[in-house]
Nucleic acid binder design. Sequence first.
DNA 1: CAACATCATTGGTCTATGCCAATGTTGATC
DNA 2: GATCAACATTGGCATAGACCAATGATGTTG
Lengths: 240, 240
Amino acid sequence: MSSDVDQATPKYYLLKTEVLGLIANLRPGTLIPTERALAEKYATSRTTVRQAISELVAEGKLGRIQGHGTFVAAPKVTHVRQLTSFSDDARSQGLRSDSTVLALDVVGSDAEVSAHLELDQGKPVTRLERIRLIEGEPLAHETAWLPGKLPRFKSKLANSGSLYAVLAADYGIRIADVEDTVETALAGPADVRLLGIEMGAPLLVVHRLARDVGGTPVEWTRSTFRGDRFRFVSRVKSGN
Amino acid sequence: MSSDVDQATPKYYLLKTEVLGLIANLRPGTLIPTERALAEKYATSRTTVRQAISELVAEGKLGRIQGHGTFVAAPKVTHVRQLTSFSDDARSQGLRSDSTVLALDVVGSDAEVSAHLELDQGKPVTRLERIRLIEGEPLAHETAWLPGKLPRFKSKLANSGSLYAVLAADYGIRIADVEDTVETALAGPADVRLLGIEMGAPLLVVHRLARDVGGTPVEWTRSTFRGDRFRFVSRVKSGN
DNA sequence: CAACATCATTGGTCTATGCCAATGTTGATC
DNA sequence: GATCAACATTGGCATAGACCAATGATGTTG
């Protein structure tokens, strides 16, 4: 029967608020006190300090480097998605965008890919796996599957860097319709290795299905974005 | 020397994978062993078990209730966003949608709201704060700000439940363009209270700015969605 | 039989502590 | 002066244990 909200606020959450106040006016990169120092200052245990710090790291407010310290994080990068690709988006914001190709090959489609591309399982699909960087920092891990084989795809992609531009210019494939799904996930060892984040960090997992004018699927992509450095923006205009 | 795999992957992550295997073929709602039992079974401490379980809860794979136990979670709800609203989206999927109005009043716009609605600070705006439920379960906390006062807004909204339908039918406001930004956050005490989730759970925070045909902002909304039960879907069609 | 008090169980929070891994500094060596 | 080894510092992982809070079963009582 009793109203009972504030009484129950755990100490680690109060500490989290406290640290937020500490860093409010600090520039990105500024080191904050060590975990052991904070534990002593606020008369608590290092475990409790770590729980507070961990959540602030997961939210993108702090960063930490083992052996170095914990520091104020840089503001989030904003990313715009329309019918454009990653590289176009970045360019439109005046940001330097790069990508590292991890794999570019033709493989047999598995159950998931074939279902989305509406192909029979095992049919050849072109797989393009890339790390996407903005301002030199890895922000996303992206794997795209395209139906069939694309002749001289590698060299053409190397020139442009923009998948959608190559598809349109060299293969006559025009994207007419995309559907994105966004959900949260937590970073595992593979994400840690590829994106340079820490275990358990929140991720935005985006699946994109693109179709051409006739409604035929032409691209199925799974992208993993750093949740701490990223905002997903979609603009929709009424067709009426 | 060292066996390299042990060193690379922390024990809590191995345990996480182990538990994923345990629940792979279990129906939602099935209780898994208690934290103390798991700690004993895998010869580890309860702290380590909790770190593994906590991440699985954050990912929406498990749920837990204090005093009761830890159980397999239900699959995610899919949510479609176009130029539609929450209620329309749910209906199109055959899901029962409700909303609880927490606040419906006229307030002076603060700095953030006035900036987005392109008003002078302090100008009156209509504030509508709601909890959104699907199938009786709270999934989102949503606060919308609309420029000015809307006569008889309360009664009109009560009839329809759909904000966009009311705006169009009763006030002649037609949305022509929306921009959504999506980012991750972690649940604090207020989110815990309103959405019935646990501290530190990942959230999707969506800001929406809607404009009419003339480009005038007509709605600024901040929505907080449960990251564990939700997928954000946006469909974009080419206007070319 | 219904209502209530009791109590064991289970998750939630916190402490205190230890060792490992990565980093950066200090100082010896060439 | 440059190089490299040793060491201190800092975050990362894990243990063992304690107490609290919510839940649900058990048993008592009116």
